[in-house]
Each structure stands twice: as structure tokens, then as C-alpha cells.
Design a protein around this nucleic acid. Sequence first.
DNA 1: CTGCGATGCTACGCGGAACGTAGTAGGGAG
DNA 2: CTCCCTACTACGTTCCGCGTAGCATCGCAG
Lengths: 104, 104
Amino acid sequence: MAGLADLGRFSEPALHILISLAAGPKHGYAMQDDIGALTGARPGPGTLYGAIRRLEEHAYIEALPEQERRKPYRLTDAGRAALGVELQRMRSLAATGLRRLAVA
Amino acid sequence: MAGLADLGRFSEPALHILISLAAGPKHGYAMQDDIGALTGARPGPGTLYGAIRRLEEHAYIEALPEQERRKPYRLTDAGRAALGVELQRMRSLAATGLRRLAVA
DNA sequence: CTGCGATGCTACGCGGAACGTAGTAGGGAG
DNA sequence: CTCCCTACTACGTTCCGCGTAGCATCGCAG
């Protein structure tokens, strides 16, 4: 096992964070903006930093040296792999659902 | 607004139920099997019937006449519409994520 | 006819993720 | 000096996810 589903039940915020970091290292506030642009909903601090802490515990992301009260994070190899698996699962499920909708 | 996100924070089980019902009306136990086949994880009764209740409250699904201690459900038009929107959002997000992974 | 498994659902309780709000603090604009 | 943006920490509430247990019906083997 050991997929994204280990993070609580599944965790949409966590997925958004990983996607955000897939474009390069970012600190928390920048992720909020990126996720807001991506999904239309900007997560609050409680949601964001809670999910970050869990992702770090699972070694899907790691902190870079702090600079000027900013805490940048980047994807680990494990995080990159987990994200890839999860995204393909997602795409496949979406395709199946859309196919079912089209037929019925 | 008025999307799938109204169902609690996000609700993956709810999405699976809608996809399952997109293939035609089903009762609870059949959904469990269908979702199990679809995702690899068969939801327990607590998860399933809890999500069903919430979906029914939001009028995304509706109960059909009970027969032989089975309670079949089917998608409403609103549910079908919400599912379509959600699936496209999903597919788009997955595509964005995979693109970012490929580049980096 | 009697266990016994599969089917189908209800009831219940716990843990923890999601989310908002408030608070702290530096830095730049005016 | 004041305001607003940046950036994060701390805290509390809500309620979803999920498992367990219980109850009832049906079919089938022995």
C-alpha cells in the first residue's frame, strides 16, 4: 500500500498541495494562491498547514532551509511517485464516470 | 455554487456512489460491490449509507419504491449534472498535475 | 429441519481531517 | 505612524469516514 489514502481518509487539500509543489518548491502562502488559482477555492491556514504537516510526516514533501520567515517545501521522490499514481487513478475514474454518464 | 463540495468537505464516497448510479439504479449492497470493483476498496455500511443519506438530502439521488427489503436509488437530473461538472473538474485537475509532473 | 453463509440494511461510536477565526510579526507604501 | 499585504502559528468546532455490531431474510447443504 502506502498511497495518498493513508493521509486521513483521502485528503483533497493534500492532493492540491502536491500538485502545487509539482511545479516547483513553494512556501505555504504561495501554495494557497496557487491552489486558489487551480481550484477556485483558496484554503485557509488551518486546512493548509495541517495538510502540510501530515504530508511531511509521511515524507511526501520536505522542508527546505527557512529564509526570511518563509518555509519552502518541495516534493520528495516518494511524494512524486504517490502523486503520479493518484493522478492516474483519478483520471481513470473520471473517464469511467464520464463514459457511464454519456451512455445512460 | 451548489456542487459536490457542498456535501461536507468533499466526500469521495459520495462521488463513487454517483458514478455507480450513473450506470443505472442500484441498491446499497450492489453499490458496495460496484465501488469495490471500481476502486479496489469496498466501503463499509457506515460509510456507504451515511453518504447515501447526505446525497438524498441534497436531492442528487432519490429512492425508488422498496421491494423485497431492497432500497434502490437512482440519480436525479441534479445529481447527473453535478456529477458531470465534478468529473470534468477532476479530469482537468489530473491533467494539469500530470503535465506538471512530466515537465519537472 | 437445522445450521450456516450470503444478502441487505440499521444503529452506534470513535478518531481525526477540514475549516474558520484569531493572533503574531515583519515589511513596504502612503 | 498607520495601514495593508505577506507568512505562519495556535486553537476550537464540526462532522465525515469508517469499523463493529446487530437484526432479518433467503438459499443451500447435510
